[in-house]
Design a protein around this nucleic acid. Sequence first.
DNA 1: GCGTCCAGGTCTACC
DNA 2: GGTAGACCTGGACGC
Length: 302
Amino acid sequence: MKHLNRSIQLQVPRDFDFWSTVWSSGWCGLAPFSFDEERRTLSRVHGLTSGKTVEMTMMARRGRVLALEVESREELGKADVEEIEGVVRTCLRLDEDLSSFFEFLEGYPDFAWVREMGAGRSIRSPTVFEDVVKTICSTNCSWALTKAVSGRLCRILGEPYSEDLCTFPTPHRMASTTEEFMRKEVKAGYRSPYIIEFARKLAAGGLDVEAWRTSSLDSASLKREIMRVRGVGDYAADHILKLLGRYDFLALDSWLRRRFSQIHGNGETTSDREIEEYYAPFGRWKGLVLWLDMVKERLINL
DNA sequence: GCGTCCAGGTCTACC
DNA sequence: GGTAGACCTGGACGC
């Protein structure tokens, strides 16, 4: 089938670095995202509201420019292009103002590298729905399993674009499946009823999770609301808050605990209280500072 | 090949 | 409010 290509260029903030944004978390490896480490590109297969499916590939260009190559089987209209640009802006957090964070870090020379690199952002999904489902799928399992379940969700319930590329399923599509199917085919295990219940609430219009992005609630109150989703506990709620751009909580998981003990505890086990105390001086930015501290080695070796 | 452990936790029952 | 035990999957590991 014939594929149509379109090139788009986006202006990015002065303090933004594309590859450190992509590379700072494992989210870039969860379908329908994929990356090419050698070419330093991030791709995503995405279903537009017009019903068209596109594959978008992002890469950095000189200056404050992000290049976007979009492939589609159908001609794209102005509204399609605007939607694609919006998806990219959301995924890369181009509209997240981190200037006050960088000003705050000026008091911490150990973190000067963050501003120098343009680090601080990490990718997320274009919808809160997708981020919540993926977060639930990341709990109490290996990262390999999280990737496998995300892949199966797309492959089995998403819209196919090519032989091996599919979109992330919509809430309606996920809501229409059964717990048994989710267990047997997607192999999401005991998380299956949680995911389906969440999708059904959204599909029925009983829950507007996109509103969380602009919620006027303080983070503690918003966290309580997020935790009303079954399958989302303390860690997952903290992680979702980070994806929403709120960093007042640490989102401690077993990987972070192990990493902290390697970096700051000489390999000795450290308690959550000790980790909390270590990052307490960073106030509302502590969750972001913790994350950057843990992935520093990965980023400065880029 | 087989059994066990555990990983980027959460829920429920019980005290 | 704190804690124990159950819960899916799948890779790593020891035997």
